[in-house]
Design a protein around this nucleic acid. Structure first.
Lengths: 119, 119
DNA sequence: TTAAAAATTAGAATAATTTTAAATTCCTCT
DNA sequence: AGAGGAATTTAAAATTATTCTAATTTTTAA
């Protein structure tokens, strides 16, 4: 655990959301001004490998990183554009049953209104 | 409908699969040798907008393009690595019901064995 | 405390994609 | 068929996100 990694974790913990590497870099700089982008990428990549962080990719945009370790799904709001967590209980099990095959992992991105934008 | 666009469509129709822009470029060159990458990107982007083609994105890899216009899901095989279509009937409707909100679109990528790799 | 291992740094490099402006082609109207 | 205008293609440069390299610093463990 280096100071740089601690800064990255602090940033992700305090601003729980779905950040791009660049956003995390800018926030982490406030904690640790000399930090460099490569360190952000290195740490994010290893955190993804360790399963501490999930990577969300949308085409045309840079990857986002989600510190919520519990498997869950994402809504990209058709109204405000934000990425919002949702939880479909036992989705992985249901998917395995339907496919007749053990699902190792999955990514589900839903384009609809997020709860805040539904009146 | 330009000759270049026709070549791109022909390539995608004859080699139905999930190609990167680069792969489509290489195939389209055989049909129309002077074609240029920007044309491939222009056309793929407008076809995606027109709903003729779907874009599949995986982090760390270039986008792939799928000419199957019917909504469907993708398996990325944990064994052979290929991208394979699957169809979960009425998935969008079921998702809308479960969320209590009209789903406009969704992307589901499943990491498991593809049918060919299941013995 | 010292050697080895791991992480960070700066900066260059890469790859995919987009942008720009100019040239070409296509379509429509007469 | 020919002119005019719109749309598309082209070539090249630019951009963006990310990775790589090599040197340096920090951490770990003996």
């Amino acid at each position: 655990m280096t100071k740089q990694r601690a800064a990255i974790i602090k940033v992700m913990r305090e601003n729980c959301g779905h950040f791009t590497a660049e956003e995390i870099f800018l926030l982490a700089q406030k904690e640790y001004p000399s930090i460099v982008r490569a360190t952000i990428y290195n740490n994010l990549n290893s955190m993804v490998e360790e399963g501490l962080v999930r990577r969300i990719c949308q085409s045309g945009q840079s990857d986002r990183f989600d510190r919520n370790p519990i498997p869950h799904e994402h809504i990209i709001c058709t109204s405000c554009g934000n990425v919002v967590d949702v939880n479909l209980p036992d989705f992985k099990e249901r998917l395995s049953d339907e496919l007749g095959c053990e699902v190792e992992d999955y990514e589900l991105v839903i384009h609809c209104k997020c709860p805040d934008c539904r009146l």
